[in-house]
Structure formats: C-alpha cells, structure tokens
Write a protein that binds this DNA or RNA. Structure first.
Length: 426
DNA sequence: TCTGGGGTCCTAGGACCC
DNA sequence: TCTGGGGTCCTAGGACCC
C-alpha cells in the first residue's frame, strides 16, 4: 500500500456531456436547438436521451417509445433513431479536446471523462473547470457539465449539482454536507435499485445519512463496493483514476428483432451476422477469444405467450478471431438451445476470455491453414472498413433480412461523408 | 404492433486437491 | 471401520454503470 506524502488535496473533475445524443443531433440541425428532442435506442425501442425541453414535458428516461407516442405528437417532439457512428465520432473529438488540458484522464463512457486536477491551485480550480467547459463548447459544439471534488464519487455528486447550476461548473469543496443532505440516495454513483431499496428500508435516504453510517454496518449489509462508496462520500479516495486504456475482456453483439421470428433459419442468419461483427471487433483490437456464448430469448413483456430464454457457452480448443470458425461453433450451439414453437425477440453472442493475439501467434498447435484464413480475414476487414460494415459477408448471414431492426427516424448523418454535411446556399 | 445494447466487478458455491 | 478440513480455482448469476 502506498501513502502519498503530500499536503496537496486530490482533485478530480468529472466532465459529462449534456443530453449527449440529443446534442450530437443538434449539431447538424440547428433548427431544433430550443425544441424538445428525443433520441431512441436501437430498434426505436426506448427513450435514451432527452433534451431539457423533452424532460419538462414529462418524457422519462428509458421509457418505451410506444408509451410516449401521444405525448410526442401533442408537443411536437423531434424524434431520432440512434446513430452510434455519429456519437462515437463526436465523442472522440470531445475527448481529444479534454486531452489538451491533461494526460491524466480516464474516459469513463461515450459522454463522460474524469480528469485529475490535483495540480491546480485551490482558488483557481473552479475557473479552470469553466475553461474546460468553454473550450469543449467552442471546439466541438457540445455543452457539458463539470463537477469537481475530492473523490470520484463526490465529483459525480458535484456534476449532478452542476447540471442544475447556471454556469454548469461546480467545485464541491465547502459546505459539502449541506449538498449531501439534499442528495437522494438513489442518485449516488454505485447505488442502484437493489442497494437503494436496502438503504431506504433502513432509514438511509440521503447521501448525508449514508456518509455517516457505521463501517461495520455497511460491510455487513452490502459488499466492498458499498463500503468504498461510503468512504468516498467522506472524501477518502478508494476508487482510483484509471488513466491506462485497457483492452476489453469480453465482447458481445446482440440485437432485438424488428419483427418476432420463429424459424431456426432466421435465428441462424442473425447469430451469423452478430458473430461476424463481434469477430471483426476483436480483430480490430488484435485480440483472440477462447470462449463463445450464444443466447436467444422470447419477449419478457409478452404476457400472452410462454417465455423461453436459453444460452450455451462453448470453449474453443484453440483461441481464435477467425469469423468462419466462430460462426461454425455459434451455429452448433444455437441448434442445441433452439426450441420450435416460440416467438423469438432477441439473439446475441458473447466472446469472452479475450487475450492478445500476439500471445498466440506462434502457437505450434495452430494449423498452417490459419495463415491462409488470416489473410482472408484481413481482406474482409479492409473491404468492410472501406465500403461499410457487412459489405462482405457470408451467405449464411442472409440478405434483405426481415428481422433487421427498425430505424425509422434516422438523421442519416455520417461525419465521414460529405453528402451529409449541412448545405449553405448563397 | 411496438420495451436497447455493451460492458465490469463481486460473490457464493461447487469442484478439486492434499 | 473410520469418512476432516482447509485451501485454491473456476463459474454462473447478479448488481451496477452508461
């Protein structure tokens, strides 16, 4: 255990993009800048991003789209299907801008990052936060909120408060308790549905009360993560800044179907497609997998039909990233769990036990054939990168699939394509 | 008619070993 | 005839995150 012998206080900022997906759509569509806007999840299923105006109307996060359709119509809410290629691209620009401030940065999600500000003088911290916010807005057009505090958990709290603040920036340094007294237990980072229930049952309904709970009680009633959260609320760092970018340990691809399907053939097509995409992803990261899981399920919401859900995990004899091999195993697994007579709603695959490709490159057990197929994979990846995903596929993936997801409100913006850039007439 | 998708970490409990 | 106990490793499932 290391002990930092420094009088300097830890300071960590959490920069969070406001209504990120909505903000991305607004970049290319200034007309909707003050209008209620909503972005839907894949398959146009749920609401996953809302503008302030949409929140005010009463559209809730995560709500199924069909339930708010009336509200949407009545209030002229602008609807978008999600466009992850666009959001990923804008995200990279935001993170790049952040890196112009510091290398000590942890990219936490597509729209959030922690930045270490321990080196900034106490009285200059808040102003520094404002500079960050202004530069991101100026360079990318994306509005953010900046919360700064002693620990990551407290900076999450600060960010929450900053979202409602005029300046969008807050340094949580003084009167912390007065803020924590008004901070609901379920809004704390790391406290989800189950923990909230447990805490509230025991009379702990604010961050302040949780902060002052006894160590023994937390350890007994929850787990190490629960205990860490409590310590962090007290200003004691337990969750470190992860500045090293690490490779993923598992990779899943799954989709709900636009239309429920019954046949094994259709399931095979979707599983094959997911497999090809997952394999391409791990090849991109120079990784190989030793285990593949296949799962299928019917809709858990359909009360009129019997529910069926099953999965199977297959360990591979030799780690690989070869699409053809993975597809072969996946289909084999699918056939074992498929049952006739159900209306399937979703299928997916998970590649796990991922390792570096180089570790296995000279494995003597690998047949010479592997080299040949590696060349093939490279050719496929190159073509798909150039002409778009699934330009080259295999016959088993099917064409014109009726099960493909709905995407009826796409803005069709592609930041890599000139055609989708806004047009100016003079 | 229509309810997302992709991750990580922790833990309990089983298998196995000596 | 007697049938322990402690340690490690692995995995499935759950909780959490955005």
């Amino acid at each position: 255990m290391s002990y930092t012998n420094s009088s300097k206080k830890n300071k960590v900022a959490l920069i969070d993009c406001n209504s990120f997906y909505v903000s991305c759509e607004r970049l290319f569509n200034p007309k909707i800048s003050n209008k209620p806007v909503v972005v839907l999840s894949n398959n146009d299923g749920c609401v996953i991003s809302r503008s302030i105006e949409a929140k005010k109307i009463g559209i809730k996060m995560g709500e199924p789209y069909f339930k708010v359709k009336e509200l949407v119509k009545k209030n002229n809410v602008h609807i978008f299907s999600s466009n992850y290629a666009l959001y990923g691209d804008i995200s990279r620009r935001v993170m790049k801008t952040l890196k112009s401030f510091s290398d000590k940065i942890e990219i936490y999600s597509i729209d959030e990052a922690f930045v270490d500000l321990s080196h900034i003088e106490e009285k200059k911290v808040e102003n520094y936060g404002k500079q960050i916010r202004n530069r991101i807005l100026k360079w990318t057009g994306i509005p953010t909120s900046v919360g700064i505090a002693n620990t990551k958990t407290l900076s999450k709290v600060a960010n929450h408060i900053a979202k409602k603040n005029k300046t969008g920036v807050i340094y949580l340094n003084e009167n912390i308790d007065s803020y924590l007294k008004n901070f609901h237990i379920s809004d704390i980072w790391g406290v989800g549905k189950q923990l909230s229930k447990l805490y509230i049952k025991n009379g702990i309904d604010t961050a302040y009360k949780l902060k002052n709970i006894s160590n023994t009680w937390v350890k007994k009633s929850t787990n190490v993560l629960g205990a860490k959260t409590v310590m962090e609320l007290r200003g004691i760092t337990c969750i470190n800044l992860e500045t090293q970018e690490t490779k993923r340990k598992s990779c899943c691809v799954s989709r709900s179907f636009g239309k429920k399907i019954q046949s094994l053939e259709k399931l095979q097509e979707s599983i094959t497609t997911h497999c090809l995409n997952a394999a391409e992803k791990i090849r991109n990261d120079k990784q190989i997998t030793r285990s593949i899981t296949i799962y299928i399920r019917t809709s858990p919401f359909d009360k009129n039909r019997k529910y069926y859900s099953n999965s199977i995990t297959i360990d591979l004899p030799v780690a690989t990233s070869n699409s053809l091999e993975l597809v072969k195993m996946a289909i084999k697994g699918l056939k074992k769990i498929y049952k006739y007579g159900y209306f399937y709603q979703k299928a997916g695959i998970i590649l796990s036990k991922l390792t570096e490709a180089s570790e296995n490159e000279f494995n003597l057990l690998t047949p010479i054939m592997e080299n040949k197929s590696q060349t093939l994979m490279k050719a496929i990846d190159f073509t798909n990168a150039k002409y778009g995903r699934n330009s080259i596929s295999i016959a088993q993936a099917g064409v014109n699939n009726s099960w493909r997801m709905r995407k009826e409100h796409s803005s069709k913006i592609d930041t890599a394509s000139f055609d989708s850039l806004p047009k100016i007439s003079i």
